[in-house]
Design a protein around this nucleic acid. Structure first.
Lengths: 222, 222
DNA sequence: CATGCATCATACTCACCGGTAGCTATCCTA
DNA sequence: TAGGATAGCTACCGGTGAGTATGATGCATG
C-alpha cells in the first residue's frame, strides 16, 4: 500500500488544523470576555485543558493569536465585498448587503478581536498589515457611497465622513453585544441599516418607520 | 495675622489640585497614545519629569487614574444634557445639540479614556460606577429620540437601536481621531449629525445634501 | 530655632506573564 | 522493530511593572 501513509499524513495535517483553529477560537473567546491584556496564555491553555507549551505548539506567540482572530473576523467582510461587486443592483443595495455582513461579523465571536486589535499592542509589521486590511474595508465602503451618490440611490454626502459614521456604529456593536442577547447579529445589522437609510428627519412618505420594504426601496433617480 | 496662614493653606490646596489635574491630563495623554495597559506609571511620571511615588502622591492607583480620565471625559456630556433640557426647541434640535457636545468630548484628550475604559480593567466597584454613568447617557439619548418621535421632529424609529447607532458612530471617533487632524471635534460631530439626519436614502426636497434649516455646520471637508 | 507637614526621590518587593528548555509518550513509516 | 516525526508535559527564566518603605528637602508655623 502506497496510498495509505499519505492518507494518514493528510489526516494528521487536517487534525492539526482543526486543533489550531480550536486554539484560535478559545483565544477569541477569552479576549472577548477579559480583553487581550487581561488574558494570559495560561488562561487559554486552561480553557482548552492543555498546558501553555501546547498552545505554543500551534501558534508562535500571543500577538499572532490576536492577528489570527482578527483575520478570522475580517475575512467574511472581504468576501461580502466580493459578492456584492457581482450583484446587479443599485449601489445602496450593494452597500446594504455589505453592511449586513459587516454587522454580523462584528457580532461574531471574532468581532472583538477584529474591532479592538490595537496598533499599540502589535509589532510594526503586524500593525501595518492590519491597518491595510482595515483600510481596504474603509475604501470599499467609501467607494460604494460614491457610486450610490452617482447613481442616485444614495443621498449626496461626504463619503469619508459617512463611511466613518457607518463603520463606527457597526464596530461599536462589539462593545455591547453578547452572545445570549435576544437579537442576532443579522437582526442588529438590519435595524442599524434601517436607521441609517431613513435618517432622523421625518420623511413625508414615512410609513411607521419601516423602510419601504427591502429590496428596491426608493427612487433610483436618474 | 490670622487670615494669612489660612490663605496660604488655601493656596497650597489649590496648587495641589492644579498639579493633580496635570497628572490626570498626562495620564490621559499617555493612554491615548499607547493604551492603558501599555502605559506604565513610570511613563506618566517621566512625562511629568517626576518620579513614580510623586504620581502616587496625587492618585491612589492606576485604576483611579483611568477613572478620573473617564469622568473628565464624560462630564461635558452630562452638562450638555442638562443644558439641552432647558432648551426650548424640538427634540431633534436638542438631540443635535447634545450630540455635538458628545462628539467634541469624544474627540477631546479624554475621549479615549471615556470610550475605552473597559469593565475588564476595572474593579467591580469602579466598573458599576462607570456603567451607571454610561447608562445615564444612553438613556438620555433614547429619551430624546422618543420625544422626537412623539413631537414629530424625528422619523419613527426604534429608540434603543438608534441610540446604539448614534453613540457607536460618535464613540468610534476616539479610535481614529488625532489632535493634528484637519477637522476639529465640533466639525466632525456636525458632519456626523448631517449624515444621521439626512439618511442614506435620497430625499426629494434635497438640495445637494444640505438639510433645509441647516443651522448645523454641515458638510465640512472637501 | 524647633516642629511638623507637604512634597518628592531612591531603591526596593513581589507577583505575574510571555516565552523556552528539555523530557516523555505515541504512533506512523521504512 | 528501529528511527523519526508528532504532540504534549513539568519546570524554569527573565523582564516588567504596580505599589511601597524609607528618608531627604523645603517651607510655614509656634
Amino acid at each position: 500500500m502506497r496510498g495509505s501513509p499519505w492518507r494518514a499524513s493528510r489526516e494528521r495535517a487536517r487534525d492539526r488544523q482543526v486543533k489550531r483553529e480550536a486554539v484560535i477560537r478559545a483565544a477569541a473567546h477569552a479576549f472577548n470576555r477579559k480583553g487581550y491584556h487581561n488574558t494570559s496564555l495560561d488562561d487559554i491553555a486552561a480553557a482548552l485543558k492543555v498546558s501553555k507549551p501546547t498552545v505554543y505548539y500551534y501558534v508562535s506567540n500571543k500577538e499572532q493569536l490576536l492577528f489570527e482572530c482578527f483575520v478570522a473576523g475580517i475575512e467574511p467582510i472581504r468576501t461580502a465585498f466580493r459578492k456584492a461587486r457581482r450583484l446587479k443592483a443599485s449601489a445602496r443595495e450593494r452597500l446594504q448587503a455589505v453592511l449586513g455582513h459587516y454587522g454580523q461579523a462584528v457580532a461574531s465571536e471574532f468581532g472583538w478581536c477584529m474591532v479592538r486589535a490595537e496598533d499599540q499592542d502589535l509589532s510594526p509589521a503586524m500593525s501595518t498589515h492590519i491597518k491595510s486590511l482595515k483600510s481596504e474595508i474603509d475604501q470599499g465602503i467609501r467607494r460604494l457611497l460614491r457610486e450610490g451618490v452617482q447613481d442616485g440611490s444614495i443621498h449626496p454626502c461626504d463619503p469619508k465622513m459617512t463611511a466613518f459614521a457607518l463603520a463606527g456604529a457597526l464596530n461599536w456593536i462589539a462593545h455591547w453585544y453578547r452572545e445570549n442577547q435576544s437579537m442576532t447579529g443579522a437582526q442588529i445589522a438590519a435595524a442599524f441599516i434601517t436607521v441609517f437609510e431613513n435618517g432622523l428627519i421625518p420623511r413625508e412618505s414615512a410609513e411607521t418607520g419601516r423602510r419601504p420594504e427591502g429590496r428596491l426601496a426608493g427612487r433610483v433617480a436618474r
